[in-house]
Design a protein around this nucleic acid. Structure first.
Length: 104
DNA sequence: GCAGTGACTAGTA
DNA sequence: ATACTAGCCACTG
């Protein structure tokens, strides 16, 4: 699979996540037409140019957690961006998928 | 080309 | 609830 098309479809799928909702890496992979490519979704996001309009903050892991190293700067940024969209974290710092997961 | 890595997941114990 | 495993595949050195 070529990087260009793979990443392109991943970005297009992520752009469909509505404001105030979240999706998991595996979910994005499936919807983009690449089931099992969860890791590649993560890698694509890691390589996302900042000037591209992709709501990367709405992609979290299957347990509702932010999958960035807590030591890094972007972990806090992602949480803040989601909270600004009205997403409420539980007492364990996780997003309740029952409430906020995107249902296409 | 091979081996290790990683914003992952589903399964099992 | 946690821990470990196998599977996954683009990227990197």
């Amino acid at each position: 699979m070529e990087r260009k098309e793979l990443y392109h479809r991943i970005y297009l799928t992520i752009q469909q996540i509505p404001y105030g909702k979240v999706a998991t890496y595996g979910q994005i992979a499936r919807l983009a037409g690449f089931p099992g490519y969860a890791r590649q979704v993560g890698y694509a996001l890691h390589a996302t140019p900042d000037d591209m309009d992709v709501p990367w903050q709405r992609v979290i892991n299957a347990r509702g957690e932010i999958s960035l190293k807590p030591t890094g700067p972007y972990d806090q940024v992602q949480r803040q961006m989601l909270e600004d969209e009205g997403v409420q974290f539980d007492e364990h710092g996780r997003v309740p998928l029952k409430i906020y997961q995107w249902q296409p």
